[in-house]
Amino acid sequence: MKRTLILHDLSQNDAELFLPRDPVKYSSFAASPPVRHCTGCFGCWVKTPGRCVINDRGADFAALMARHDEVVFWSRLVFGGLSPDVKAVLDRSIGFVLPFFRALNAETHHVKRYDMTPDFQYIFYGDMTRQEKETAQKLAAANALNLGAERCAVSFFPSVRESAAALRAPI
């Protein structure tokens, strides 16, 4: 059975209304209120491999990713990328990969820490321009390449309510 991890920045009210209620298939991680931001110490690579050294709930996300078949980034679109709250969690999760380099498509990327990497799904909501949507498509592909995800899907919606339908669509 496919297990999906949902990282989201929904309000508490929206989370109660729209997050799936099947705990066997779905786990969720609320990015709001925000976790502390990454300090760039690289402790997750050289001190406590795979886990951020900042001791708050943001330290758990990298290991959670490794235990799921799919990770959904459900976020307000900000400048063509993730919202600050969701980005704070992702910035704290680079321990998901190793510090070492490998060449992919003639570019340098990180070596995977885990044999299995979940598929990524980006669900963006809110006001957005065509340019921001183009940026988001490229950003999702870049994230997938850097974090080792083989499949990645991106969708855009004007509101949280409308974006909730995307969760039911398979990649």
Binding site: P34, C38, G40, F79, P84, K87, D91, I94, N143, N146
Partner: peptide
């Protein structure tokens, strides 16, 4: 930071 802007600056 992960292909983008560090979260605190964002």
């Amino acid at each position: 930071y992960v292909d983008g802007i560090p979260s605190h600056l964002l």
